[in-house]
């Protein structure tokens, strides 16, 4: 696994490159497609925001990367390239060496991600001993150092506590300590602050970004909070109904969204600077997986929908590679010239 980290370091400009990822899941009534041709990439040290309503496939993308889906009832298509290795084709034992070491994940609800019957110190040690040759004592020292690095005042004491003894904010700090203890190349943070109060959210975001910067970890930051994306991410992608519908540098997307869905999300947030009155909203809801509209999946909810929208929409790319590259899945984006927020 050491080689993997090195090849990643050795000047490759993408850390994670997802190409045409398709995911189908099976339930009682058969197979259903959850992700459709999802392509996105994360560069080393980059913070990528992934936004969209519930049920758009954000978390499913994350679970696919870590292969945390039930193997019998899920089918992956396309490629998930991580440091040159295709995770979609990795064996379970190969994945076990990657999970927690090179890619780790923070979940929305820390209580359900921590084991209630072990102390938090033990749970961090377990992660360390799984990936490194360390004695109990060494592992325990590193676990305490990790708790200290996430701003826990008395790490030696907290290491002996069980998750139930901690507040929500403290649990999320423990999760971050555990996720970053092996200094992974990529951290997937799935709604890490949604269950927290705003003042605690600000603390946790500050901590997360500071630590990731220090360890050189890239973050794939999944959230429905566009404010957090604007504040902390370099690039963003918008997902809708299992597809990527827009992507680009955060500032450009917010100042001039190209997909009506991104624009709708931006404008439906109450803004204290704007006069009180009717908030623009997006009518309807995310379509059910079994009844996807033909053509543009956002069509039935889109206020700009017209005849050509019944054709399947493809991703259009524009801009030079990397820095200012933008993509949009809307045939009419040029004529629409949607309004953004700010300058």
């Amino acid at each position: 696994m050491q080689q993997l980290a090195e090849t990643t370091m050795a000047g490759q400009d993408t850390l994670l490159d997802i190409q045409n990822l398709t995911l189908s899941l099976r339930d009682q009534s058969g197979w259903v497609e959850v992700l459709n041709n999802v392509s996105l990439s994360v560069k080393p040290k980059e913070i990528l925001g992934v936004v969209g309503e519930s049920g758009c496939g954000k978390s499913m993308t994350a679970l696919s990367i870590l292969r945390l889906l039930p193997p019998r009832d899920s089918r992956l298509g396309g490629k998930i390239l991580f440091g040159g290795q295709n995770l979609a084709a990795c064996s379970e034992s190969q994945m076990n060496r990657i999970r927690g070491r090179h890619i780790s994940m923070i979940f929305q609800e820390p209580m359900s991600a921590l084991d209630p019957v072990f102390t938090v110190g033990y749970q961090i040690e377990e992660t360390l001993q799984r990936h490194f040759k360390l004695s109990r004592r060494e592992a325990s020292e590193r676990a305490i150092a990790a708790l200290n690095s996430v701003g826990i005042a008395s790490p030696r004491h907290v290491a002996t506590l069980y998750p139930m003894n901690l507040s929500g904010g403290m649990r999320q700090r423990v999760m971050i300590a555990m996720a970053l203890v092996c200094e992974p190349r990529l951290l997937i943070a799935d709604e890490p602050t949604t269950a927290l109060d705003v003042t605690i959210q600000a603390q946790i975001m500050d901590l997360l970004l500071g630590l990731a910067d220090r360890t050189g970890t890239a973050i794939m930051f999944i959230t429905h909070n566009l404010g957090l994306v604007a504040q902390s991410c370099h690039r963003m992608v918008t997902m809708y109904a299992g597809q990527v519908v827009e992507g680009g540098p955060v500032r450009d997307v917010i100042a001039g969204p190209r997909h009506p869905y991104t624009a709708g999300l931006l404008h439906s947030i109450p803004d204290s600077n704007r006069a009180r009155g009717t908030l623009p909203s997006i009518a309807g809801r995310v379509p059910s997986l079994r009844h996807m509209p033909k053509g543009c999946r956002f069509g039935p909810r889109c206020s700009y929908s017209m005849q050509p929208c019944e054709l399947p929409q493809s991703i259009e790319n524009e801009g030079v590679e990397d820095v200012d590259r933008r993509e949009v899945r809307c045939n009419r984006w040029e004529e629409l010239a949607l309004r953004g927020v700010g300058a």
């Binding site: 600000a202 404010g227 100042a255 803004d271 700010g342």
Partner: peptide, 12 residues
């Protein structure tokens, strides 16, 4: 509280 609220408008 106001300052902890994430701001969308980058200039603000």
């Amino acid at each position: 509280l106001r300052s902890a609220e994430p701001e969308i408008d980058p200039t603000a």
